[in-house]
Write a protein that binds this DNA or RNA. Structure first.
Length: 995
RNA sequence: CGGGGCAUAGCUCAACGGCAGAGCAGCCGCCUUAUAAGCGGUUUUAGCGCCAGAUUAGCGCAAGGUUCUGGGUUCGAAUCCCAGUGCCCCGACCA
């Protein structure tokens, strides 16, 4: 080795061990992520994880299938990222946690999309062709979604996801319907839907559009049938009428009741020898409108004479006579009644409009004409009171023959005739033309009606195992009653029981789910559509007897398994039924197929069975479901029903709810509002890693905000994590863990301190992962990197790492700590920063039997033995350090020093502080990063430490930059201090020994 | 209108009936051996005193954060209860 004394200070620099690593400072995520994905795909990382965890305890996260319609948005991305956090962290806890993604492929949005694309052509297309188009659209959408999900770094069985439109899944869906039938939950009823009488088809709300329309508005008298004194003694013996208002007179033949609000005050007022009941607040308005009473000379109507006032609840379950039919009309109470008239039939058809309006003016009477077959609210309340869902209107919009006076007439044509009819009989108080927005068919532009059609329902209260009781008319036999009892019966009771056994995170999920099941009506599973799984029921062509039998349904399912549910359309009924099957009722052998398909919620609700139970590597029930809060009404709900029907148990042990993604102001994101953050933009600009870190940084149990500023903060956070890792890696250059690791007892104390801090963080991070609190993981690691490592530990050990001889034991001590820190950091970050953690892993000096990718490794475990004494000593030392840094800053402001190494510090302390400082006296200059420290004893009783800063004595060492009076002592190394002389000699000696 | 949720610093989050905090951002500096990096200080304010004295800055004293608003329970509330405001989800054959 050549003498170094002749070398310039620049060459001296070469003897300093500066960081060196292939882990670049600049991440270039947008470029490097795809390369890493490719590598993982080639090495079959997901499969390797499965092999590594084979035989371990299973942990099943069951994926809620996103709808295979459009490209993913921020919320979809976040949802999948959170799932990946869970799956990766559980795998790294040692569980065997597979991930099978799924897609929800059937349903209206896709069919609507296809409708619009096909346009007029669709009318002449067979169902199979439409279904093919839907299938293609879904296949294409899910392909794009898969690509985008994979780009996010999410590992799973992407080559074998579950699709609700796959043959086995469709078959299983049909079989599950059979199970519901078998257990007696299924019945045929009726329910009102939008109906276009021109096209003779049901319409979805998305298929109606609103246009101005003129309807006849009518005020009609319904005579009270009950004893009026039950309402108020003052009414005894009077001729009492309840006044209703509607803009759809044609629904009056279907009137079965009148609904009032239980809490509103109602008045009975006189008009001639009759008494009319309306809401008190509307007495004046009604009298005015209907010209009740005689105007005085000034043209004013007198206020009617009110004979009684009472709450609406008084009317509950009394009866009126239908205005002209020989039939009762039941008085009911319902919260949906308003004084604005929104709840009348008019706005039944105008729901979204009515919801936006706070008040539609003072039309109406507060007594709502209720025809359960012709309105949504009417339907719901009708069910509650056990009314028939009566709809005497046929597909073409004609009254059925049973309708007296108007049989055969089209409903719109009948409108004026009904008005006239009522006028002639003195039932009508007033009529006028009423302009309002009214729903029209999107295709033929004609006004639509609300009309009850036969549908299949799943009963919430039917007792399992009972024989299905079906009316001739398919009328509902299982009344929904408000005074539901706790006795064990039906799906509702089972759901309420199981809800208590599920771990809901956050805990309010339990209440929400409970409320939902308490109040929910029977589940209507019929949809008048083609893109879905057909309801596998047959009807006798002769007597219309339905055949819904599990064995036959299973037969059909077997065909679906081979040919997909398309078979329902491509095959004749007799091909699907057993050979020679004849109607049990009439003996006929001609069959018709049900045309309705199953609600898509039935499809996705079936997933726990269709996927968890049918895949050999999964199991039922799932450990975890995690979705947005909207799924309480959706997937959480339907999945629970299916679980109960099949196994009498919830299909999930834990249900996590995540919030929605909002903009910077906390407003919902809409493409139209222009405040949406597009995931692909973030990925393109910053990388998927940033999206993942954002998902981890926010508390997902609440709604999560996202904006340019927030993403900037996240990016800054990422840089800090990356640079921290980079420092560790750079200083591990030349460190061979197997050879150079310093045994625990031989470590420098500050290195042990760093490891003790690491141990603390590891414990907390594990807890946070265990509790699915990823934002705590992020904040813990972020603060650990920023404060404990970057600002403290790393800054302090730089001197040792850079200036000591490479193989010096003290330097190896620091490296030993760094190695453990970097290793643990990579593991702890791995579930979140999937790309970066693996990059750290690659650049980390390895001992031999380490997994190939960090995702195959396990999370570090906290050491139970805590170094409490050491930690508390050092906590106090760092408090004193803060005081010193403060004093140094003052000296800096006073231009006494620049770098802290220019300083000599005098610390005066008393008591425990003094003892502590003396004990660590030799360490202090390194801890404080100054050139010299003197500890003085201050008088007892003086609290705190007093710090004095002065210029350090001596000259600056050109190598380590510390100040020393001994710089220049060595002739061989003229510009350096005594420590560096020693270091340089050590370096030379080791070079000699190598040669 | 009903069911549920959320509201703490510019941003993201702690504090879970017992002293309201962290990180980041901002501002002011230092360093140039993590270098498109690193480190430190600082970041509510009327008043009083000291220092200084053109100003800026500095030190001390004292008060000091309407934890969205208003009530209540409690010795004590960000926390529990009630009401209100704002935002979000659900109540639609949308997912």
């Amino acid at each position: 080795m050549k003498a170094m004394s002749t070398e310039t200070p620049l060459d001296l620099k070469k003897t300093v061990n500066l960081p060196k690593t292939g882990f670049s400072q600049k991440a270039n995520l947008a470029q490097t992520e795809p390369a890493r994905l490719k590598k993982w795909s080639e090495m079959r990382l997901y499969d390797l994880i499965r092999e590594a965890r084979a035989g371990a305890q299973k942990f099943i996260l069951h994926d809620g299938p996103p709808y295979a319609n459009a490209d993913i948005h921020l919320g979809t991305a976040m949802n999948k990222i959170l799932k990946d956090f869970i799956v990766k962290s559980r795998n790294m806890m040692g569980y065997d946690a597979p991930y099978v993604p799924g897609y929800d492929c059937h349903g209206l949005p896709i069919e609507l999309y296809v409708d619009r694309k096909l346009g007029a052509k669709k009318a002449n297309m067979p169902a199979v062709a439409i279904r093919r188009a839907c299938r293609e659209h879904a296949a294409q959408a899910l392909k794009r979604q898969t690509r985008d999900f994979q780009r996010l770094g999410i590992l799973g069985e992407w080559d074998n996801p579950y699709l609700t439109m796959s043959n086995p899944y469709e078959a299983e869906t049909a079989r599950l319907f059979g199970r519901f039938v078998e257990r007696g939950y299924v019945y045929k009823g009726a329910r009102p839907v939008y109906w276009c009488i021109h096209d003779q088809t049901a319409l979805a709300e998305a298929e109606v559009e609103y246009h101005q329309h003129t309807s006849p508005s009518v005020y009609v008298k319904f005579p009270l049938a009950s004893d009026p004194s039950l309402i108020d003694p003052a009414l005894a013996g009077r001729k009492v009428f309840v006044l209703i208002w509607t803009t759809t007179p044609w629904t009056l033949p279907a009137n079965l009741g009148i609904t009032v609000h239980p809490d509103f005050e109602y008045s009975a007022f006189e008009h001639g020898d009759e008494v009319y009941i309306v809401a008190s607040e509307l007495v004046g308005a009604v009298a005015e409108k209907c010209e009740l009473g005689a105007r005085d000379d000034a043209g004013n109507l007198p206020m009617p004479n009110v004979v009684a006032r009472f709450p609406g609840a008084k009317l509950d379950r009394l009866a009126c006579w239908h205005a002209w039919l020989d039939r009762e009309s039941l008085l009911m109470v319902g919260e949906h009644v308003t004084l604005g008239g929104e709840a009348d039939a008019e706005t039944e058809l105008d729901v979204s409009e009515a919801r936006d309006k706070k008040s539609t003016g003072k039309a109406g009477t507060g007594c709502v004409h209720t025809a359960p077959g012709h309105g949504h609210d009417d339907f719901v309340i009708g069910k509650r009171y056990g009314l028939e869902i009566y709809c005497p209107v046929d597909n073409a919009g004609h009254f059925t023959p049973e309708v007296e006076h108007f049989a055969g007439q089209s409903v719109f044509e009948a409108n004026p005739r009904i008005v006239e009819f009522m006028r002639e009989r003195g039932l009508l108080l007033f009529t006028e033309n009423y302009e309002h927005r009214y729903p029209h068919c999107w295709r033929c532009k004609n006004p639509v009606i609300f009309r009850a059609t036969p549908q299949w329902f799943i009963s919430m209260d039917q007792v399992a195992g009972d024989v299905v009781e079906k009316d001739e008319d398919g009328r509902d036999r299982s009344n929904f009653t408000e005074n539901y009892s706790d006795e064990e019966r039906g799906l509702r009771a089972a759901a309420l029981r199981e809800i208590e056994n599920v771990n809901w995170i956050p805990a309010w999920g339990r209440d929400r789910m409970r409320n939902m099941f308490r109040g929910r009506p029977d589940w209507c599973v019929s949809r008048q559509r083609v893109w879905g799984v057909s309801i596998p029921v047959f009807y006798c062509a002769k007597c219309t007897e339905p055949v819904a039998e599990p064995e036959i349904i299973n037969r059909v399912a077997d065909v679906f398994e081979k040919e997909s549910a398309d078979a329902w359309y491509t095959r004749e009924a007799r091909e699907l039924l057993p050979e020679g099957y004849v109607c049990k009722k009439c003996g006929a052998d001609e069959w018709l197929k049900e045309t309705d398909i199953l609600d898509v919620w039935f499809d996705s609700g079936a997933s726990s069975i269709a996927v968890l139970e049918n895949r050999e590597n999964l199991s039922w029930p799932a450990d975890v479901y995690i979705e947005g809060g909207d799924q309480y009404r959706g997937w959480f709900n339907s999945s629970l029903m299916v679980g109960l029907a099949i196994h009498d148990r919830a299909p999930y042990k834990t249900v996590l709810t995540h919030g929605w993604t909002l903009d910077a102001q906390g407003k919902a994101m809409h493409k139209s509002a222009g405040n949406a953050v597009a995931p692909e933009e973030v990925i393109k600009d910053s990388g998927a890693e940033i999206l993942r870190l954002w998902s981890a940084s926010s508390n997902y149990f609440e709604d999560m905000r996202c904006s340019a500023e927030i993403l900037q903060r996240v990016t800054d956070g990422y840089r800090k994590l990356r640079n921290t890792a980079r420092f560790a890696l750079g200083n591990l250059h030349g460190f061979d863990p197997a050879r150079d690791t310093v045994a625990e007892p031989d470590l420098l104390e500050i290195d042990r301190w760093a490891l003790a801090k690491l141990n603390e963080v590891v414990g907390k991070v594990r807890e946070a992962y265990d509790a699915y609190e990823f934002h705590l993981v992020y904040h813990l690691l972020s603060e650990f990197c920023t404060v404990t490592l970057s600002a403290r530990y790393f800054d302090i050990i730089k001197d040792r790492l850079y200036t000591f001889a490479p193989r010096n034991q003290a330097r190896r001590s620091a490296q030993t700590a760094l190695h453990q820190i970097a290793d643990a950091l990579a593991r702890m970050l791995a579930p979140i920063l999937v790309f970066t953690s693996d990059e750290i892993w690659e650049n980390l000096p390895t001992d031999n039997d380490r997994p190939e990718a960090v995702h195959l490794a396990l999370l570090p475990e906290a050491n139970a033995a805590r170094e409490d004494a050491l930690l508390s000593n050092w906590q106090r030392l760092f408090e004193i350090r803060d005081d010193v840094l403060h004093a140094l800053e003052e000296a800096r402001i006073g231009k006494q020093i620049g770098s802290s190494l220019e300083a000599r510090v005098e610390i005066a302390a008393a008591g425990d502080s003094y003892d502590l400082l003396i004990r660590y006296a030799d360490e202090l200059r390194y801890l404080l990063i100054v050139s010299e420290v003197n500890v003085l004893k201050s008088d007892e009783g003086v609290s705190g430490v007093v710090v004095k800063v002065e210029q350090a004595d001596g000259k600056k060492c050109e190598r380590c930059w510390n100040y020393s009076t001994r710089v220049g002592e060595s002739a061989r190394y003229a510009d350096v201090c005594e420590r560096c002389v020693a270091a340089l000699e050590e370096i030379e000696a080791s070079h000699d020994s190598e040669n």
